[in-house]
Simulated scan of single mutants.
Amino acid sequence: MNVLGEVLTPSSYITHHLTNLSGGEGFWTVHIDSLFFSVLIGYSFLWLLHSVAKKATTGVPGRLQCAVEMVVEFVDGNVRDTFQGNNALIAPLALTIFIWIFLMNMMDLIPVDFIPYSAKLAGIPYLKVVPTADVNITLSMALGVFFLVIYYSIKIKGIGGFAKELALHPFNHPIMIPFNLLLEIVSLLAKPVSLGMRLFGNMFAGEVVFILIAALLPWWAQWLGAVPWAIFHILVITIQAFVFMMLTIVYLSQAHNDSSH
């Protein structure tokens, strides 16, 4: 019997914890829990940063203000070093991506049965609390970045310039246009896929390890596996947020690079 009050085998326990609370059918299936927690975390950190900004002082700052300023300066420094262009959107976007993904990843450190147990008492049968362990969430964010890349590529270079970039790179000869188009389009489409799948793969794997520890070890010994993995996972959580942010900056920097000028 697990903490949810159900008699489950390790296999059914793992399956239960990897099942989303869903609505709809087929293509139109919506993972309600992933959407709920991602929106809740997003609004929470926006409210927090807004509150810190309103209360910010030029004197001796509090701990929370110091922490926020450190994150802002860290992201701003990476944008200045990486982004080759002039766009006021990039720094706020990078800051939002980094903090939002970091906080969503942090949900993986909550004991696997803690929130699902509370949800079970409220009559909710399934509940996954780590939005970034859901491929729909990570690919949606990656597609958002992809659309921005396309938008700025066309805005900065024009439709003709963007098409020319796809058709005449890497081989600047008319006879190589079909090969160039194939190569560049595949490379372009691979960006959102790799961006979303990298984040999903790492967070899903981390979630599975925590679930395996809870499923296979007795409750009194779970800390022997969960604590060391959680300490290591803090590094993974931070790196994945940083990588997603940096690749977003790099992709948008490439979109702003007009080689024809």
Rank of each mutant, 00 (worst) to 15 (best):
V60I: 10
V60P: 05
V60C: 04
G62M: 04
G62C: 03
G62K: 05
G62T: 02
R63V: 09
C66F: 08
C66M: 14
C66P: 03
A67D: 03
A67K: 05
A67Y: 04
A67P: 00
A67R: 04
V68R: 02
V68L: 07
V68H: 05
E69N: 15
M70S: 12
M70E: 12
V71Y: 03
V71L: 09
V71D: 03
V71I: 12
V71K: 04
V72P: 00
V72Q: 11
E73R: 11
E73I: 02
E73D: 09
F74K: 05
F74D: 01
F74Q: 05
V75I: 13
D76C: 03
D76I: 05
D76T: 09
N78C: 01
V79T: 08
R80L: 07
R80I: 04
D81V: 12
D81S: 15
T82Q: 12
G85A: 09
N86Q: 07
N86I: 03
N87S: 11
N87E: 13
N87P: 06
A88I: 12
A88T: 11
L89D: 14
L89N: 12
I90A: 06
A91P: 05
P92R: 09
P92I: 07
P92N: 06
P92Q: 06
P92F: 01
L93Q: 10
L93D: 05
A94K: 07
A94T: 10
L95F: 11
T96C: 09
T96G: 09
T96A: 13
I97N: 07
F98T: 00
F98H: 01
F98E: 00
F98L: 01
I99H: 03
I99L: 13
W100P: 00
W100A: 04
I101V: 14
I101L: 11
I101S: 00
F102K: 00
F102R: 00
F102C: 00
L103H: 05
L103P: 01
L103K: 02
L103R: 00
M104G: 02
N105C: 08
N105G: 14
M106T: 06
M106K: 01
M106Q: 04
M107Q: 08
D108G: 10
D108C: 07
L109C: 13
L109W: 11
L109Y: 14
L109N: 12
V112M: 08
V112T: 08
V112F: 04
V112H: 03
V112P: 02
I115A: 10
I115M: 10
P116D: 10
P116V: 07
S118L: 15
S118P: 04
A119N: 11
A119C: 15
L121Q: 14
L121G: 10
A122F: 15
G123W: 13
G123Y: 14
G123R: 14
I124M: 14
I124K: 13
P125W: 13
P125E: 13
Y126I: 11
L127W: 13
K128F: 01
K128L: 08
K128Y: 02
V129C: 09
V130I: 11
V130M: 02
V130Y: 04
V130Q: 03
P131H: 05
P131F: 01
P131V: 04
A133R: 03
A133P: 03
A133H: 01
A133E: 05
D134S: 08
D134Q: 06
D134V: 02
V135R: 06
N136T: 15
N136A: 12
N136V: 08
N136L: 08
I137Y: 03
I137D: 00
I137W: 01
I137A: 00
